[in-house]
Design a protein around this nucleic acid. Structure first.
Length: 732
RNA sequence: GCCGGGAUGGCGGAAUUGGUAGACGCACGGGACUCAAAAUCCCGCGAAGGCGACUUCAUGGGGGUUCGAUUCCCCCUCCCGGCACCA
């Protein structure tokens, strides 16, 4: 063993020793406590970034700790290898997504190995491998048989120039990222997985996960969004041309007597009916179709509407209510229609003010009731009474402007006939009972969670194993013909899915009647791939089944580590998928991840210059010098190469597009992996967001150097011993 | 817009039933050792004032509760993550 600290030599030798001795190979050993340490697998984007180093170092620290404590540790690694970036890279460089992906995997595997992680590489998997995605297809077919997968229409972003579906990410300010054309919403047929059937279990089981961060459980609970409400039917007005009754869902049935109009989505059949002979309505419906399908866009857009001229009947007081088309009502949510109570809903209030629709107060807030009681009780003197009256005035309803107490639930009904004086709960019950008696409504539980649409009109993904036959309809690919293999050599060009232009892929025979048929060319959402990889790690060589008994040895994973950005979608889909696998008898678990550690994002400053034409050029922070005055206060930044100032765009997640990533490879090459890992662990507590600064790297390096010297001197004096073989491995 | 999280010295951060704000580390400054440097060790290190003992201010901003608030309550600003087709 050398006295000098030479990380490159030391690490190379140690890694070789681990390799040769299969030091991290995990075997199912009975009688020893197991510890399955799982890190979210990377997307093979090209090279490792700091987020990976952080994620996998945390996992490695936990793994090594447990291993030293005598646990049987499994720490696997794999590749989330399908996805959009491969198609984009393919378009740019005219290489196939497959080649790009596998090249990236090879490079990043080398990088990961150089970090010295204690991974069992024998279990490595890639989701773009047919031996993996075959089981996506197999389980999808089982779900189809059980009615857990089904087809219906879904809304997508449509680029009218490229004639292609755009991902949300590809929509910038409502326009297609390549064409710049305003995108439209379009309804297309899609396959869905019935995650809503598991909504209750997914919600309730959150309480069985004390090893998960509170905030993640809250986020998931809010996402599932269980609420209790009433379905209400507003019958069609026979005197007007209204073609059908309108059904709405509301959690505020107590405000029903204050409903002054009903709003429907632009795609609603009633809206389409009204527009038939009405060009201006038709134009408005077309206008509503413009814009993206992103919820954030829909929620912030200007509220617009138009009167259809049609009416429905209020189910309790029999009055005629106008039917409006409103751009804030969405066809895909509930029934595509809502009852509007402007006095007690902020959005309806805004809309009613804008279009001069009536606003009728039907709830008096609880605060005013208590103040009135104080005054009536007569225990106040003149001054007390006048003070209370002043307070009361602050809670006076006015249709002029919205106030936050208007939509509180703690009041009682007024202006509501027989329901006057009832509180929220009593009023909901009474109104629901009356509606039920008239067969115009019933109480119902509602979830915000929607079924999981898995169809993607893209090439680089797992093919959906279905065949469309003109005489037999949709026919599943028989199990013995799985996997439906994705061709490896196609290169997308940005306009639609190349699979749909590849006859050798889509031409096939109907498995039922043998006639020529057409293979489904949509592929699956990549979240499908990542919903069960943790189970496949336990038995990656199993070619007869999706999983085997080894899965029940290792699962549930004792520790899962990954970015907070996955707090909802990936983690919810994985929980759902594992429960489906359980119900099909493939796994014995209820929840796949016992403990969850959500690491914070790694952020870095963004530097840029605006060119003459408004074009923005981003500069990597490593090319920028920060300028400080004598007090050490920062006053500016310049580009090192030309010494001219650059602007700061604030702090953001390290990304290619903002050119603010820091390549960990340089750190590893210069200081060694141990310094990079030590520094990363001490830069910030694991769960906190980390703003990148390399100020402490030298300190971490010096620490290791000191440590090395101490270990060396202890070895010289025989104070500690290491195995001769290991000592040899450390001797360059 | 909605849901979740965050803001404390030059920097990362510590401090929870509400009780000395700034532990520990980094960076920086001074000293010892050395021909010199590196390494190492010792000391200092929120701001302002003071020779000093000390004093005042200070945990994003404003208000409140309290003997006492980084901590609890209300309002606000900014930043980060997610919002169902980025992964």
């Amino acid at each position: 063993m050398q006295e000098k600290y030479n990380p490159q030599e030391i690490e190379k030798n140690a890694q070789q020793y681990w390799d040769q001795n299969a030091a991290f190979k995990a075997v199912e050993t009975p009688g020893k406590p197991k510890y399955y340490c799982l890190s979210m697998f990377p997307y093979p984007s090209g090279k490792l970034h700091m987020g990976h180093v952080r994620n996998y170092t945390i996992g490695d620290v936990l793994s090594r700790y447990r291993r030293m404590r005598g646990y049987n540790v499994l720490q696997p690694m794999g590749w989330d290898a399908f996805g959009l970036p491969a198609e984009n890279a393919a378009m740019q460089n005219h290489v196939s997504p497959a080649k790009w992906t596998y090249d990236n995997i090879a490079y990043m595997r080398k990088q990961l190995k150089s970090l010295g992680l204690s991974i069992d590489w024998d279990r490595e998997l890639a989701t773009c491998d047919p031996t993996y995605y075959r089981w996506n297809q197999w389980l999808f077919l089982r779900m189809l048989e059980k009615g857990l997968a089904y087809q219906t229409t879904g809304t997508v972003n449509w680029d009218p120039i490229d004639q292609t579906v755009l991902a949300n990410e590809q929509v910038i300010d409502g326009c297609g990222w390549r064409t710049g054309a305003p995108v439209e919403k379009r309804e297309i047929p899609m396959y869905y997985m019935k995650i809503t059937q598991y909504a209750d279990e997914l919600l309730e089981a959150l309480d069985t996960l004390p090893g998960w961060p509170e905030r993640v459980r809250i986020m998931q609970a809010n996402w599932i969004g269980k609420s209790y409400g009433v379905d209400i039917t507003f019958p069609a007005d026979t005197e007007s041309d209204t073609p059908q009754d309108l059904k709405v869902f509301t959690t505020r049935a107590d405000t029903l007597m204050g409903a002054t109009y009903v709003a429907v989505a632009a795609e609603h059949p009633v809206a389409l009916h009204a527009a038939k002979n009405n060009p201006s309505l038709n134009a408005f419906i077309q206008e509503c179709k413009l814009g993206s399908a992103k919820e954030a866009d829909l929620a912030t857009q200007e509220k617009k509407g138009m009167d259809t001229g049609l009416f429905v009947i209020h189910p309790l007081n029999g009055r005629k209510l106008p039917v409006w088309i409103a751009n804030y009502v969405l066809m895909g949510y509930g029934e595509g229609a809502v009852m509007a109570v402007p006095a007690h809903d902020e959005r309806d209030f805004e809309f009613a003010k804008k279009y001069e629709l009536p606003i009728k107060q039907v709830i008096k807030p609880g605060i005013t009731i208590s103040i009135e009681r104080e005054i009536e009780s007569g225990t106040w003197n003149e001054k007390g009474i006048s003070q209370n009256k002043k307070a009361l005035a602050n809670y006076t309803f006015s249709p002029e402007s919205w106030q936050d107490f208007y939509d509180m639930k703690d009041g009682v009904c007024i202006n509501s006939g027989k329901y006057d004086g009832l509180n929220h709960e009593q009023a909901v019950d009474a109104i629901a009972a009356d509606l039920e008696a008239k067969d115009l409504g019933n109480k119902r539980v509602q979830y915000r969670l929607r079924d999981w649409g898995i169809s993607r009109q893209r090439y680089w993904g797992c093919p959906i194993p279905l065949i469309h036959c003109t005489s037999c309809g949709v026919v599943p690919v028989p199990d013995d013909q799985l996997p439906v293999v994705l061709p490896q050599d196609l290169v997308p060009d940005g306009s639609g899915n190349p699979l749909a232009r590849t006859p050798s892929f889509y031409e096939c025979a109907c498995p039922k009647c043998g006639q020529p048929a057409r293979r489904e060319t949509d592929t699956m959402d990549t979240f499908v791939d990542s919903s069960w990889y943790y189970a496949r790690y336990t038995c990656p060589d199993q070619d007869k089944a999706m999983t085997d008994e080894r899965a029940n040895y290792w699962l549930p994973a004792d520790q899962y580590i990954g970015g907070i950005e996955h707090a909802i979608l990936h983690l919810l889909y994985s929980r759902f998928w594992s429960k489906v696998m359980r119900d099909l008898g493939l796994l014995t678990l209820d929840e796949p991840f016992t403990n969850l550690l959500t690491q914070g994002m790694v952020l870095n400053e963004i530097f840029f210059r605006k060119g003459g034409s408004g074009r923005i050029t981003y500069y990597n922070p490593t090319e920028v010098e920060i300028q400080f005055d004598e007090q050490g206060k920062r006053y500016g930044a310049i580009l090192t190469s030309d010494q001219q100032p650059v602007e700061s765009g604030g702090i953001g997640t390290m990304s290619k597009s903002k050119n603010n990533g820091v390549d960990p490879q340089k750190l590893v090459e210069e200081y060694g992996a141990d310094t990079a890992r030590l520094f990363m662990m001490f830069a910030s507590p694991p769960t906190q967001t980390l703003e990148w600064a390399d100020a402490g790297v030298d300190g971490a390096y010096r620490f290791l150097k000191r440590l090395w010297k101490q270990v060396h001197s202890h070895l010289q004096h025989g104070a500690v011993t290491v195995s001769p073989a290991f000592n040899q491995s450390l001797t360059p």
